[in-house]
Each structure stands twice: as C-alpha cells, then as structure tokens.
Computed example of a mutant assay.
Amino acid sequence: MLALDFDGVVADALQECAAVTWHAGPFGRGATAPRLPDAIDEVPHSFIETFRQVRAYSRTLDDFMVANVLHERPGSIDRQLFQSTRDLHRRDLADQAAAAERVRGNWRDQQYDQWTGLHTVHPEVAELIANARQDIVIVSAKDAESIKAVLKLHGLDEKVSRIKGACKNKRHVLQALLNHDPDMAGEGIIFVDDSIENILDARDLPVRVKWAGWGYHGPEDLAVAAEHDVRMLHLSEVAKLTSAGGS
C-alpha cells in the first residue's frame, strides 16, 4: 500500500491554502469571502510570504492559521516561534480553521472549475498513482471532499482506494490501517509525507517512511532529518515506489 500525503506531496495549492487562511482570519471576510479570483487577489503578497514560512511547519489546517497571528511581525519564522504561537492561540486557531473549511467549501461547491484550478498536481506523482501496483490511500489534513474533487479533475479518483481526510494525527491513521489488516505489516505500507514530524512519528511502526523533498519544510528540518538518518526522497525517484519492493 502507498499512503500519500496530499497538499505538498500529490498537489501544490499554496495560493488556495493561503487564501482560505487569510479570509478565515481577522484580516479577511470569513464566510462572506468574495468569489474567485477576487478572493485570491485580495490576499497581500506579504501575507503569502508569511504563510509560506508557516506552511513549512504546519501539519493541520489549524496550524495554517498561525499565519494570521504572525502576519506583519518583523523577522523570519522558525519552528520555535511557530510552535509557541500555535500553543498560545489554540482556541482561536481552531475557530479560524472551522471558518476556513466553510470558505473552502463555498468555493469548491459554487466555483468548482476555478477552485480545482488552484491545485497543481505533480506530474510525477500523478504517474505514480496511475501506474501503482499497490492500493493507494490518501492520508491528509485536507478534507476528503476537496481531495476527491482534485483527484477527479485529473482522472485519478478511481485509482485511490481510500481517502483519510481531515487527519489530526497521521500516525494514528497508519496504526488503524495496520490494525484493520494485520497482514499489511508483512506486505508493507510506504508512507510519503513532506513533514519531517509526521515522518518521525511513524518510524516506530512497521511502515517504510519516505520524506518528500518536493514538499514544504523549514530550514532546520534538514538538520533534524540528518540527526535521525532520514533520507530525502526526490521527485525523480517516485516512480520506483510502484515496484514490488517499493525501494
């Protein structure tokens, strides 16, 4: 089985993620966010740069909302600042994340073509999904309806056997897959994610972890990966994951 993260691994949707974050926060318009593409145009370039830094450390939609707190703060954002801000504002971030889900849902349901067009699927990963010999499950913090919509646009929805969306803890999802089918440990699950934290969380499971180098991660993460002997997987290597050994 291939267990793939979605945002960052299968698709890149930085503008879409930044826009739902902006409009869910104190600077935006919440559920009354304008239609696309005006909603994208309203997001300041400075906020997108703040979001890009926050995105590197984010594991959930709540984490994205840290950008609303740190926007216009001088200086760069490192993991320590990200984590302390997240811990201090957990309740507000959760409320904003719920608003972001509503904004995203409105765009997806009312402007399907414009919204799906904000997601760029990596050709190498699309080919991997299309040609994989293994079952494929998407394990993502993004909601399942949005994931299915993007996969359908690219003709990949029928290639994916399961979608585990809105994940707060991917290790728990992987463990549940193993518990549901104990033989899976012998057959092997290959887990591909761009978050070094998610990769390290899953290392003690009978799962082969692959850190996606084409996704989002902070500058400190390279040192963390080296410390834990985690090798970065490159886009040019993803086709090898369709082999029986998944090496």
Rank of each mutant, 00 (worst) to 15 (best):
D62C: 07
N106E: 04
K148Y: 05
M65D: 04
S84E: 15
V238R: 08
P219F: 04
V103W: 00
H172N: 12
H228W: 07
D109K: 12
D157C: 05
K210A: 12
L61N: 03
A3S: 08
G188I: 13
G28M: 03
V121G: 11
R133Q: 14
E145T: 13
A19N: 06
A126N: 02
L61C: 01
Y112S: 06
T120K: 04
W115A: 11
R35L: 09
N198K: 12
V9M: 09
R203K: 12
D181T: 13
V20Y: 02
D194N: 11
Q110E: 12
V137A: 14
R208A: 10
V173K: 12
A99I: 02
E127W: 03
R104F: 00
Q111G: 08
A132R: 02
E220M: 04
M184R: 15
L200G: 12
D221L: 08
W214Y: 12
R35A: 14
D38K: 06
L151N: 10
Q83M: 12
D87N: 14
A244E: 13
L241Q: 03
I189E: 06
K210M: 14
P206E: 07
A244Y: 06
L233F: 09
V238K: 07
L222G: 10
I199H: 07
G8M: 11
S247E: 12
G218S: 11
L2A: 11
Q175E: 15
A33R: 01
K152R: 15
D95K: 04
I163R: 05
P182K: 03
V20I: 14
D221R: 05
K170Y: 09
V66N: 07
D201V: 05
I189T: 06
A39I: 04
A100M: 08
D95A: 15
H172S: 13
A11W: 01
R73E: 09
V160L: 08
I40S: 08
G246M: 09
Q96E: 12
T32S: 13
S243D: 13
V20L: 06
T85A: 10
A31T: 00
D5Y: 10
A100S: 15
R86K: 13
D12K: 11
A11Q: 00
C17V: 01
T242A: 15
V207W: 05
G75C: 05
Y216I: 08
R203S: 04
T32I: 01
V20D: 03
A56D: 10
E127A: 13
T85Y: 03
A212K: 10
V121T: 13
G215E: 05
L81K: 06
E187M: 08
D41N: 14
F82D: 03
D78E: 10
E227L: 12
T60P: 00
D95V: 02
L233Q: 06
Y216C: 08
D87E: 15
G165H: 10
L151I: 09
V54Q: 02
F64Y: 14
V238E: 07
R231V: 13
E158G: 05
K159Y: 05
Q80M: 04
I48S: 08
A223Q: 03
R52W: 06
G213I: 03
H23P: 02
I196W: 05
D41M: 07
G188W: 08
K148M: 05
N198H: 15
H234E: 14
D95T: 02
D41R: 05
D204N: 14
H23A: 01
D63V: 09
A94G: 04
V192N: 07
L14S: 11
D113W: 02
L14I: 09
A33W: 00
N179Q: 12
K168L: 14
D183E: 14
R162G: 00
D5R: 08
